[in-house]
Amino acid sequence: MTVISPKTKKDYYQALIAKNTEYEGVFYVGVKTTGVFCRPTCPARKPKFEHCEFFETAQQALLASFRPCKRCRPLSHPNHVSALVQTLVEAVEANPEKRWKDKDFQELSVDASTARRQFKKRFGMTFVEYARARRMGLAMKQIRTGTAVIDAQLSTGYESSSGFRDAFSRIMGAAPTKLGQTTLLKATWLDTPLGPMVAIANEHALYLLEFIDRRGLEREIERLRQKTKSAIVPGLTPAISSIESELRQYFSGNLKKFRTPLSLLGSPFQLQVWEELQKIPYGETRSYSDIAAKINKPSAFRAVATANGANQLAIVIPCHRVINTNGNLGGYGGGLSRKEWLINLEKKQS
Rank of each mutant, 00 (worst) to 15 (best):
Y288A: 12
P268M: 10
F164D: 00
L208Q: 07
L190V: 03
T285Y: 03
S241P: 01
L154W: 11
I243R: 08
P268G: 14
S76H: 12
S299R: 12
K121Y: 01
N344G: 12
K9D: 03
R73C: 04
T41Y: 02
L271Y: 05
F164M: 02
K294T: 05
H77G: 02
R71S: 08
T41W: 06
C42D: 03
K141A: 15
N308H: 13
L313C: 11
L345W: 05
P40G: 12
K348T: 08
R286K: 15
F27H: 10
L217P: 00
E22G: 11
V81M: 11
Q60R: 14
A303P: 01
P281C: 06
P74S: 09
D11N: 15
E210L: 05
E246T: 05
C42W: 09
L264D: 07
G180M: 08
Q270S: 07
H204E: 02
H80T: 10
T57H: 15
K141V: 00
V198M: 13
D11Q: 15
S287M: 09
E90L: 12
G137F: 02
E220A: 13
Q272Y: 02
G157C: 10
M1C: 06
S230K: 08
T87L: 15
V29Y: 11
V273P: 06
A199M: 04
S160A: 06
E276R: 14
R144W: 07
P261H: 10
A201P: 07
H204K: 12
K178P: 00
C69P: 07
L345H: 10
G30W: 07
F119W: 03
A58Y: 09
L179F: 08
K141P: 00
E50N: 15
F119V: 00
I4L: 13
Q106D: 04
P281M: 04
T182A: 13
V110Q: 01
G333S: 13
P176F: 09
A58R: 15
S82I: 06
N202I: 00
E220N: 09
Q278Y: 07
V26Y: 14
N311Q: 03
N308D: 09
F164G: 01
R39V: 05
I17H: 03
L179Q: 12
R117A: 05
T33V: 05
S65Q: 15
R248P: 03
I295W: 11
N20R: 10
Q118C: 00
Y13M: 06
P74H: 10
